[in-house]
Design a protein around this nucleic acid. Structure first.
Lengths: 305, 305
DNA sequence: GATCATTCATATCCCCAGGGTATCGATCGC
DNA sequence: GCGATCGATACCCTGGGGATATGAATGATC
């Protein structure tokens, strides 16, 4: 009946991910016996067995899988509470905007200009994370609002679409496929993306990033690195049309991919955000994007956040 | 840097709500000094002052207000994780459907019939909560899916609309206003709702329920009680048209209210639900509702959850 | 199939975090 | 100015969470 403790959830997540008490204990910086005891106590409190264990192997039960999913979001909520409180108490609160460099479709300067005219605006602070996990940063309270490409993992977030564009594939100009003017996903079988995933998987990687195994090469984390790899033919790369337009490079060819869905640049924020500064930025972004979509008749309808 | 503990958050919430260390300590079943110390330690960990305290009064700082909001959702996430794991591990998992009695517009039997034909269906279990907080039950893991009237507090939930209907006001047949065939909200000034709120506030109570002060009368918790009160002229009551249709009573008059927005019956579930049984019920509900909206051409398009 | 290595569980000890009691000190009402 | 109220400080003490040592069971190897 007594409720769970954060410590118990962290222990559980470690064991559930490692499926090995010894390794999980090492990862937690503690000895194995207290970890075993803690998991047993957790199971007793819940009245549920979370792991099927023999002396040789550990497996998650159904209840364990459920808890693993929910424990993650609960831990995110806790760290987010701490981060947001820290930030709110700091002397100079800012509006922390997370985005990958160069995916803003060139809208960011105008959005910021419009945003700064809003009386509710706080000074903006850009958090540029290369292959960083912007939705995760929102959920963990490290950022207040983000510009990301949809589809993405939007659990706990509210979003507003800004602009939709086709996705092009960037490949070496010398690539045999570059001779063709139009491709489909199957043509890319065998090519790999900068993050090591196969290129023909249909962008299923849009959700949670797979955990990187230690020893693997660090994936390229910015466009310069990526274009270097692309030019050498090592990888191919999916880029929204605006990114392609803003990065013409002699050694790189962009080609449309027939059966790849369009991607949408969205502005996202935590669902329970009540900050007027976030609302101001969302308003500004929607207004600018609407103007971009229909430049003849600039729209001014404000979108409530 | 060490992360927060559930205990600290509970302590903080208690003090933040009571704004009084002594009362908060009593509510937590502990003495006041360790509570003071725990809050100080929390502030030290966050590097932020959460309360402005003099010896005579305690006030929340801005950071404290932020934390109060986020702490609530974090605690909900923790208890939800525990509840869902408990339920998933129980011998006979069921699909727990939360709703207020009689607000289903008469759709529930058909929905359940359709649902039961789905191979992914688990045995349904109805959780009927009178004035209960269905969205809260979803967030706390006490139910898997709910039928509720929108607008409501949908943080962390996904919803799908089922049917939209006008809202009528139920009043005593002897009420002078019952002589008129059409009313507007302002006409109801001075009347009160079964939960004690003023009737002309425009249903702003749709969000989080206000905490009930001890000593106040318990609000009526089911339709029978409510209609009794309505018949005596003690209260008025807002009812969707389908509820009115299914509850004709001699002593009660239903009248349309001009400036009251329609209400929508929605099916809601936790945003990160992955249960096939939830998806099956959502599909069934959407199909039945679509058929109800256009009975001439029964729709079978399945709605993915 | 006997032996060994691996891995989770049990037994036992120990320390400190978190809670209790007593008291102080500051502020407000009268 | 005096007492009452309420948060802060000082100090003690207990129990839970952690470590170490060891047991027990299973799978691999020859």
């Amino acid at each position: 009946m007594n409720d769970l403790e954060v410590r118990q959830l962290r222990y559980f997540v470690a064991v559930a991910e490692e499926l090995h008490f010894g390794r999980a204990a090492a990862r937690l910086g503690m000895a194995q016996p207290p970890l075993s005891r803690a998991i047993r106590e957790l199971e007793r409190q819940l009245g549920v067995t979370l792991f099927e264990r023999t002396t040789r192997q550990v497996r998650l039960t159904g209840a364990g899988e459920v808890l693993l999913r929910d424990a993650g979001t609960a831990l995110e909520a806790i760290t987010a509470a701490a981060q947001r409180a820290r930030h709110a108490g700091s002397a100079s609160p800012r509006l922390r905007i997370a985005l990958k460099a160069d995916i803003d479709g060139g809208l960011l300067p105008q959005i910021l200009d419009a945003y700064r005219t809003d009386p509710a605006a706080l000074p903006p602070e850009l958090i540029l994370g290369g292959f960083g996990d912007q939705p995760g940063a929102l959920r963990d309270g490290l950022a207040d609002v983000a510009l990301v490409l949809s589809p993405m993992d939007d659990r706990g977030l509210d979003t507003e679409p800004l602009i939709t564009e086709p996705v092009l594939v960037a490949m070496a100009a010398t690539d045999p496929l570059a001779a063709r003017s139009r491709l489909c996903l199957a043509d890319l079988a065998g090519r790999i993306l900068p993050n090591g995933a196969p290129a023909d998987a249909g962008r299923v990687d849009a959700g949670r990033a797979a955990p990187r195994r230690p020893g693997e090469a660090r994936p390229a984390s910015n466009l310069s690195e990526i274009f270097n790899l692309v030019e050498t033919g090592s990888v191919v790369f999916f880029a929204p049309a605006s990114v392609a337009r803003r990065n013409p490079r002699p050694g790189v060819a962009y080609r449309p991919v027939g059966d790849l869905p369009n991607c949408t640049l969205v502005i996202a924020w935590p669902q329970d955000a009540r900050s007027p500064a976030v609302a101001a930025l969302v308003r500004a972004a929607c207004a600018i994007a609407a103007g971009r979509r229909a430049p003849a008749e600039p729209q001014t309808r404000s979108t409530t956040a």
